[in-house]
Every structure is written in structure tokens, then in C-alpha cells.
């Protein structure tokens, strides 16, 4: 019985990482399985957001508060992951815009944003 309780608490200790893994794997699945390029980019940003969650939850301290110093608090969460992720979010949107710009140009060149149709047209051209 106590083994079971220990196993359950060991499982619950890492629940943030199970959520991260679920989000990461769903992003990976969308990127591989979907032929539509806009959906691929949305899957990529899902993958990216799982990394945000991984970093932010690693910096969390139980009983801590946001790292803005105030005489009323003594325990703070780790500020460094916040810095890394806050810049990563803005960079992520800039790269998403770049990907979407490429999709727009691909659509102008091929008349499609589906991967299979683009490969087919490439084969026909050869």
C-alpha cells in the first residue's frame, strides 16, 4: 500500500512534465501528420509553447511569488527562465510570421498550401 502511495506521489511530483510531454507530442504529431502548411506552423507553435511551459514550471518554487522584490515576501520563483521565455515568445512570433510569409509566397508560386500537391507539381515539372 505504501509503495502504491509512493508511486502515486512520485507521479504527481512530475505532473507539469507530463503536461509538457503531451503538448510537445501533439505538436510533433500535427507537424508530421498534417499536409497543410498553416496547420504545420500552428503545430510548431504548439510545440514551442510546450517548451515555454517546461521552462516556466522548472522555475516555480512552492510558496514562492513573482520575482518582483517586495518587503512582504521572502520566497520568489526563479527569474531566469522567465527572462529566457519572454524573449523566446517574441522571437517565436517573429519566426511564425516568417514562416507564414514563406507560405504566402509558396501559395503564389504553386497555387496550393498542401504539401502533397506541391510535391506532385514538383514531380510533374521534372
Amino acid at each position: 500500500m505504501s509503495d502504491l502511495v509512493a508511486a502515486a506521489s512520485g507521479f504527481l511530483d512530475h505532473y507539469n512534465q507530463y503536461i509538457t510531454i503531451f503538448l510537445m507530442v501533439s505538436g510533433l504529431y500535427i507537424v508530421i501528420a498534417r499536409g497543410n502548411m498553416v496547420k504545420k506552423l500552428v503545430g510548431l507553435s504548439l510545440f514551442q509553447s510546450s517548451v515555454y511551459l517546461l521552462y516556466i514550471s522548472a522555475g516555480k518554487v512552492h510558496g514562492g511569488t513573482a520575482p518582483i522584490i517586495d518587503p512582504g515576501f521572502t520566497v520568489y520563483s526563479h527569474p531566469l527562465p522567465h527572462v529566457l521565455i519572454l524573449t523566446a515568445i517574441v522571437v517565436g512570433i517573429a519566426t511564425l510570421a516568417l514562416g507564414l510569409a514563406l507560405v504566402v509566397r509558396i501559395n503564389e508560386a504553386y497555387g496550393s498550401i498542401e504539401e502533397d500537391e506541391i510535391f506532385e507539381r514538383d514531380r510533374d515539372d521534372k
Binding site: I68, L86, I89, V90
Partner: peptide, 12 residues
């Protein structure tokens, strides 16, 4: 400098 915020958020 004193609360949540900074150049990235304000720019967005």
C-alpha cells in the same frame, strides 16, 4: 522596473 513589464511587452 517596478512591476511586470518591459520593452518586449510594451512593444507588443
Amino acid at each position: 522596473d517596478y512591476g511586470a513589464g518591459g520593452g518586449f511587452q510594451a512593444g507588443a
